[in-house]
């Protein structure tokens, strides 16, 4: 059965995946549009490199297409599964990188002071990305999922296959490290209120 494309907006991810497995082309497009941006953004935040993030996003989506016929409804959310696959793929890449190129952590752009609001926002995002790159992988993943993706601690615990308390510990340590890393740059990033 074919459904009109805009009718897919209210269809849950898991149902779309079943439709995809049954050969529905509209479901393929809907899942691509719905999932790829999230997968791409998450991979970028874990890797800090746009080209690598695109490769990871394509591979993660390919794994989703392949597993679709075996997907068991009610066992896991598609997004949970995808976040886990992205994290694993990113970990593999970071391991290959480790000790070889410290330059992979992107440098922030230096045009923030006196720039317009949009540029200031971009500068802050870049600075955060650089600071995230300095965190241990698990701390980075937990902080990104909690504070940028906006997931709950139980969801993150499921994705990372750890307990909720461990998630809380990782995010707390991660945020402390981020604060330390960003403290020295507060003036150039528009903070003049004594944040420390």
């Amino acid at each position: 059965m074919k459904m009109p494309f805009d009718a897919m907006d209210d269809v849950p991810d898991e149902a779309l995946l079943t439709l995809f497995a049954n050969g529905d082309g509209t479901a393929a497009r809907a899942l691509t549009l719905r999932m790829t941006p999230r997968v791409m953004a998450h991979a970028y935040r874990l890797l800090g490199d746009r080209d690598e993030a695109e490769d990871v996003a394509q591979e993660a989506m390919m794994r989703l297409w392949r597993i679709a016929p075996e997907w068991r409804q009610g066992e896991a959310k598609v997004t949970t599964w995808l976040y886990r696959v992205v994290a694993n793929l990113c970990t593999d890449r970071l391991r290959r990188r480790r000790g070889v190129d410290l330059d992979a952590v992107p440098e922030p752009e230096d045009d923030a002071p006196g720039a317009e609001q949009g540029l200031l926002q971009q500068a802050r995002a870049d600075a955060l990305q650089m600071a995230l790159g300095l965190l241990p992988e698990r701390q980075r993943q937990a902080v990104v999922l909690r504070h940028i993706e906006g997931l709950s601690n139980p969801e993150i615990a499921e994705i990372m296959e750890i307990g909720v308390e461990a998630v809380e510990s990782l995010t707390a340590r991660g945020k402390r490290a981020l604060s330390d890393a960003l403290a020295s740059r507060r003036a150039e990033l528009g903070f003049d209120d004594g944040w420390d």
Partner: peptide
């Protein structure tokens, strides 16, 4: 203040999410 300052960074990250 740390929480508030970090949240500003997180908001910036959300607003400038790298699209595919």
């Amino acid at each position: 203040r740390n929480e508030t300052g970090l949240e500003t960074f997180f908001e910036s990250a959300r607003a400038t999410a790298p699209g595919p």
